[in-house]
């Protein structure tokens, strides 16, 4: 086992992953940083070095402030909602109710659908007057809500879509964790007089903590990473009320073709994600596992 690899082979094996990493991770990141220091050139506008001008624009960008606020609210909203929903679903399918297999399948289904397809389904669901949401509300005599067309509801509507899409996957993780909770711990609590709710709060939920942290981290990443539904459903509107950071980068870079400002925004996003990643490692490093 201790035989050394020939130097040449070792080199070849190293080059492959390194070149992939450099080509698709490091180079683009450095390129974005460089681009952010230049203007947005075209055949009619010669390129010139502008220094931190783009970053000054960043600070003065009112829309960016709204986008960052939206992103923050979106993350803060989707994470607890996703955790709550996925635990509830996991508890439901882990119970002794009939047809849990069918429930499991239907809860997991949204995860298997592409986000664009999910967005189209919800687009119809939200359509004022004709969508299912409106019909349900009309049935109860409630007025129609213009979910995607009003600034108060559009961001929340996007959150619901994201949670609906991701909770099924998180449910699987919770299900696995729930099945790993020793039955005799629950029995012990029950013998001391704890009801089902107390058993859950005192025993089960604390033991799910590693999963909860995992899910929270993933939901946080998704909050910054997934914007397909925004593109399909609201295009960030109305009045930028549902625009998230990545969507804004997409819009600036590919629709407005302002590659320099897009690169500047990308640098900002990388910085934010870097801080979040550092924070996550710090949290995950702390003791979260029990034997």
């Amino acid at each position: 086992m201790n035989k050394r690899l020939p130097l040449g082979l070792g080199f070849v094996l190293l080059v492959m992953p390194c070149s992939l990493l450099v080509a698709f991770t490091h180079y683009p990141a450095v390129r974005a940083l460089i681009n952010s220091l230049w203007n947005n050139a075209s055949s009619r506008r010669p390129s010139k070095f502008v220094g931190i001008e783009n970053y000054e624009a960043l600070i003065a960008d009112e829309k960016l402030m709204q986008v960052l606020t939206n992103s923050g609210l979106y993350a803060l909203g989707t994470i607890p909602l996703a955790i709550f929903l996925s635990i509830s679903m996991a508890l439901l399918v882990n119970s002794k109710l009939p047809a849990t297999g069918l429930m499991r399948l239907s809860f997991f289904m949204p995860t298997m659908l592409p986000l664009v397809a999910v967005a189209n389904i919800w687009l119809f669901f939200y359509a004022p007057g004709i969508g299912l949401a409106s019909q349900i509300m009309n049935f109860f005599g409630l007025p129609t809500i213009n979910f995607l067309g009003s600034t108060e509801t559009s961001l929340a509507s996007m959150m619901v879509v994201a949670v609906w899409k991701e909770a099924g996957l998180f449910m699987i993780f919770y299900l696995a964790a729930l099945q790993a909770v020793p039955e005799n711990l629950k029995d012990a609590a029950r013998l001391e007089g704890a009801g089902p709710v107390r058993v859950f709060i005192d025993v089960v939920f604390p033991l799910l903590r590693p999963t909860t942290i995992f899910v929270a981290v993933n939901a946080l990443i998704n909050a910054f990473r997934l914007v397909d539904h925004i593109i399909v459903m609201t295009k960030g509107g109305p009045d930028n009320s549902s625009a998230l950071l990545l969507y804004y980068i997409y819009e600036v870079t590919f629709r407005q073709r302002d590659f320099a400002y897009g690169a500047t925004l990308t640098v900002l996003m990388v910085a934010i994600l870097g801080v979040l990643a550092a924070f996550q490692f710090w949290v995950l490093d702390r003791k979260t596992h029990y034997q």
Binding site: L123, A127, P128, I130, G149, G237, P238
Partner: peptide, 14 residues
């Protein structure tokens, strides 16, 4: 007209 923003895509269906 319905208050709030009105989307292009839903209009023919509506």
């Amino acid at each position: 007209m319905q208050p709030g923003g009105i989307s292009w895509g839903d209009t023919p269906k509506a």
